[in-house]
Design a binder for these strands. Structure first.
Lengths: 217, 217
DNA sequence: AGCACAACCGGACATGGTGTCCACTTGGCT
DNA sequence: AGCCAAGTGGACACCATGTCCGGTTGTGCT
């Protein structure tokens, strides 16, 4: 479970209990090394996440104050776990991105290993537009502007694309990785959709680029 | 003078004197139709622009308050002309972009008309990276995030790239235009430069894409 | 059960930016 | 010389931020 695109929860004093990613393990192993998440904390986490999901869906930007009010929770409580609205959106986005990451690493071709690089990149573009389509509001809330590159998820996508460029034998993988990822910026996709371009058309334009750039010479 | 990428100055009551773009015409023509810009106003405009240029160069974000303080001008004066820091950066950027726009329309090939579309796009990429290199701080101040697409300049670049795609006979010019422009987003370029990639390498990667996508089949 | 301690909660507070408003000043014009 | 509109700048009300701390609640232990 060495996933890369994880949330970075607020780290309080020495240990980090917040937004715990795994279920109770219930094993003797390290059950005592870190305190369990308390019931009230879990309850509030749910309330916050639900309220934030709702707010992000209906408008932007969303402030910490709004989320706290909508969740019926104090501001201090909110700040305890999340430093800003973006990190809340990121937490919401987390599991969706995780699924795609899994498919990229171990799924069937052409998304997963086995297909030629150009086809894998095309499939990746297609999957990413689906994700943007479904959770675009969260992506806009979480990864807007330059902060997008700071997320762990971006590192994952970048590593993936870079490896495809290398596999295709095209020079300059480091520059190309960021360049090829640029059209997936949420603002760009959002602009195209607002201009009336259907998702499929965006995806196929990207597929065209993927083949043009990575196709065997 | 039908340039597209102009600044949009604050429009006060019925007429718009602010940030006047042209020198005194001194012709009898419409010299009286709109009042001249007053000397004190011009003085302050200079002070504001100079201070803003300095501030944008050294850090971001820059607030209206800071600019006013640095320029030795009241906040009300600042707001009279510019609604926010971005529009000030845009005003500073204006003439540089104007020069490039001129070259695209009427300059020598490969930037101007005459060269094959793939070469013109490559040359455009090269010129844009130069512009980003020199005035990146202003571009970051002016066109960050989604607001980038709202500027007149973006419309110009988009129309240019679109026409090249059409000339190359590649399908889907509307989608491709935004897609091909995406890597020129200031955050993307900034990221690549911070990662130690020299400008030339970015430009040549973009040239490669230009040729791969627009080259005659 | 019941206790004690730590985790957790939430509102108050100080700070800083925003955008507007309006009484005053300045400069161009007759 | 004097008028008057354009221009100025600071005060004001508002809102979001992030921190802090007294009180509360859940958990583990006895």
């Amino acid at each position: 479970m060495a996933r890369i695109g994880g949330v970075t929860p607020r780290t309080d004093p020495p240990n980090d209990t917040a937004a715990r990613p795994r279920e109770r393990t219930d094993l003797l192993t390290d059950a005592s090394t870190r305190p369990r998440e308390r019931a009230d904390a879990a309850r509030n986490r749910e309330k916050v996440l639900a309220a934030a999901e709702r707010l992000f869906a209906e408008r932007r930007p969303v402030t910490m104050e709004e989320i706290a009010r909508a969740a019926g929770v104090g501001r201090g409580t909110l700040y305890r776990r999340y430093p800003d609205p973006a990190s809340i959106a990121l937490a919401l986005l987390d599991e969706h991105e995780r699924g795609l990451q899994e498919k990229l690493l171990r799924g069937d071709p052409p998304l997963g290993p086995g297909a030629p690089p150009a086809e894998r990149l095309a499939a990746f573009y297609d999957a990413m537009t689906e994700l943007l389509e479904r959770h675009g509001h969260l992506v806009l809330g979480a990864e807007t502007g330059a902060s997008r590159f700071a997320t762990g998820a971006y590192g994952f996508w970048r590593a993936h694309v870079r490896s495809l460029v290398v596999a295709a034998g095209v020079p300059g993988p480091d520059v190309l990785a960021d360049t090829l990822l640029a059209p997936l910026g949420p603002e760009v996709y959002d602009l195209q959709r607002r201009n009336g371009v259907p998702r499929e058309e965006v995806a196929s334009a990207l597929a065209g680029i993927a083949r043009a750039v990575l196709a065997p010479s």
